[in-house]
């Protein structure tokens, strides 16, 4: 897949933006909408004033114009629902739900329409809709603007869910999501957007297949499973463990639904110990789901019970010292790895 010789390092935001731009050039049915995705509502002299709250859609309006790049009123139920209808009738809308906590305003459209129409209508309608949403704590934004909420969406059959963990996966997963005929939720962690770019991102278009995890670091003593931002945390922890003489394997989940069960099970069968690191609320979570999977399918291989590292069962605090205790960090992961390795 990679043809370049040099390393092309770009930010998460640039990689995501590049994927959107490429797909809009390739396919005239791809359109983008959301709050301030261009900004200023097309006001003359101020076109593309904003480019989305995370600047993920910057530059699309000048290139593709007001028909395919639409600022919306703050009406999530309306415009996410309109995305479902446009998708059902021939477009491939890519819609921004600014922060995932805003899902509540439009949950009906996502879970009762987008997720179910294909099934209810006997497979006769496709909903090739992509929704992307900002997630994650660590930005002093308090309880309503810092959530992760993977499991709410994963819970619903019919929705696909992906969580990129770096610029390379942001580009490849977004392209795959737009081309997918099912509705896909793309979770963009805000802390990942602030990190220094690392790793090669090919200039050409590529897909990362939905449903496949990847091993970002081979190891033999323990498997660390990360989802989105926590993959970054697992990588840091693996480096610390290496300095202590342990060999940690890091599995980057990438696809939450469908989930790559084989990759998880085979890694755990190899290392015989697993630490699952998830930033979402701990109850009924990806971490719990993966833990159950490992217990059911790899029990005989395990040297220790699966260990989950998550925030406590509480809303996200505003105060920075409390917030620092909330998000799983590398020290938490190293400590958990020590526990399972005894």
């Amino acid at each position: 897949m990679v043809t370049d010789v040099g390393v092309r390092e770009i930010s998460y935001i640039q990689a995501f933006n590049e994927a959107l731009t490429d797909e809009m050039r390739r396919d005239p049915t791809v359109m983008v909408m959301g709050e301030d995705v261009a900004g200023a509502g097309g006001r003359e002299g101020f076109e593309d004033a904003w480019g989305g709250v995370m600047r993920l859609t910057k530059g699309l309006y000048p290139e593709f114009g007001p028909s395919r790049v639409r600022d919306t009123p703050i009406s999530e139920a309306g415009f996410i629902g309109a995305g479902v209808g446009a998708a059902a009738t021939g477009l491939r809308p890519v819609v921004e739900l600014m922060y995932v906590g805003f899902y509540g305003v439009c949950a009906d459209q996502i879970t009762n329409n987008a997720a179910k129409m294909h099934y209810m209508f006997g497979g006769k309608v496709k909903i090739p809709l992509t929704i992307f949403a900002g997630t994650g704590a660590g930005t002093n934004s308090a309880a309503q603007h810092s959530e992760t909420l993977y499991s709410l969406f994963v819970h619903f059959p019919g929705l696909k869910c992906v969580a990129p963990s770096d610029p390379y996966t942001a580009k490849g997963l977004l392209i795959a999501s737009i081309r997918d005929d099912d509705p896909v939720i793309v979770f963009n962690n805000r802390q990942l957007m602030g990190l220094r770019p690392e790793g090669h991102v090919p200039e050409e278009s590529y897909e990362i297949p939905i449903g496949e995890a990847r091993i970002v670091r081979e190891g033999s003593d323990v498997t660390l499973i990360g989802v989105g931002y926590t993959t970054h945390v697992c990588r840091q922890a693996a480096a610390d463990l290496e300095a202590e003489g342990y060999s940690a394997e890091v599995l980057d989940l990438l696809s939450l639904s469908p989930m790559d069960e084989d990759a998880i099970v085979s890694s755990v069968q190899k290392t015989r110990k697993v630490v699952i690191v998830d930033e979402d609320y701990p109850r009924c979570s990806m971490a719990g789901d993966i833990s159950a999977l490992v217990a059911e399918q790899a029990f005989d291989y395990l040297d220790a019970p699966p260990r989950r590292v998550t925030p406590p069962h509480t809303s996200v605090p505003y105060s920075r010292p409390l917030e620092a205790l909330y998000v799983p960090n590398k020290d938490d992961v190293v400590a958990a790895a020590h526990e399972v390795m005894e």
Binding site: N140, A142, Q144, H145, P317, Y318, S319
Partner: peptide, 16 residues
């Protein structure tokens, strides 16, 4: 400022 003496004990912040 996220302090314990705040209206919300520092848990809510400027938006809450």
């Amino acid at each position: 400022l996220g302090k314990a003496t705040g209206t919300n004990k520092g848990k809510g912040g400027t938006m809450h």
